[in-house]
Write a protein that binds this DNA or RNA. Sequence first.
RNA 1: GGGUAGGUUGAGCAGGUGGUGAGCUCCGCUGACUGUAGAUCAGCCGUCUUUCGACUGUGGGGGUUCGAUUCCCUCCCUGCCCA
Length: 363
Amino acid sequence: MPPPISFEARPAGIGRARLGRLETPHGAVDTPQFMPVGTQATVKAVTPRDLREAGTTILLGNTYHLSLRPGEGRIARLGGLHKFMAWDGPILTDSGGYQVFSLGHLRTVDDDGVTFASHLDGSVVRLTPERAIAIQEALGSDIAMVLDHLVGSEASLDEAAAAVERTHAWAGRSLESRQRPDQAVFGIIQGGVDRSLRQASTRAIAELPFDGIAIGGLSVGESKVDMASALDTVAETLADDPRPRYLMGVGSPEDFFVAIAHGVDLFDCVLPTRLARHGQLWTSEGRLRLANSAVQDDPRPADPACGCETCRDYSRAYLAHLFRAGELLVHRLTSVHNLTYTLDLMRAIRQALTDGGYEALRD
RNA sequence: GGGUAGGUUGAGCAGGUGGUGAGCUCCGCUGACUGUAGAUCAGCCGUCUUUCGACUGUGGGGGUUCGAUUCCCUCCCUGCCCA
């Protein structure tokens, strides 16, 4: 049985940056690459066709949400997540680990797993490492993530260390429980911003036979300096480990440059789509806030340098009007733009890593 | 013409039957958002002041009173009912 995915990467000459190509059962992904987040089997406000046009090659879905609704069994009976959501490209599913963090008041963690009070109706939802893998196997994603214990930047060193211990134990259990040879499984490094803890977690996860390595527990409130320092620790510890490296939950254009220089291959983040729905656009001229009164009279496209449908066909003034009027179309138009902007940036970065000009692009 | 209910800060309201009306929701202004409990949230939103605070404001005018959003007179405006 061939491995579920393959990955080849070469150093790109900028710090530890690499250029790579990830092959999955549903297609190839050039790296560094960004994955739009489609938590509930949809990237909010856009269609798979929109995603393709924006340059999306791989998407992210969520174990916790999809297990609650519509249920992994139903999705499996309907032919799996790809068919269900009409996206035939690669899909990575998150494990529900982030919900351990974000639903802090609705869950309790023990050594065996996590018990949630469903955010939908309060009913009890139990997630263990084994169950998280089983759900993802039912969904049929190309890449499954292990259940991990993510703590915020305010956690004490003891709490962070306990979460790391748990994450490592769960990582081993996850691998033992996997059934599908056609699905990759990525381990997740934790360890907060403490150097020795982060280093220990990196070593522990890298020792296990995962198909890829994720860097978790960052962009949860720590400073930019702390994030960069943690990335440095991970990169140094992983050294020339050949597997794909995925920085979870990042991020912003500034963060991409830092992380890529530290050897990160994959990213995901809700920021492009969430900011879009909140009326803020990334442009080559900086952040554009549709709520600002001056935008109402601006006839220019959101970003004159962008070729997306939104920038081709509509003015800032029109987008501002839609936003103020609460018209739903604005969500699609702004989401299409922010995703295009993000994916274009990723493409430009790969190009710059190939041809030079990374530092110039960064400024 | 008669009756009746009303007129509160851009809008819609709450409150207030002689002794501190700046409270709410919209709208508006400015921010925030990083593995999506998020088409969400926060601050501001009468005037002056960075703040503290001061001042103004209950349709107009007049009256009574130490003091009126409240009581009296009058006028204007709006809804509804009857002619």
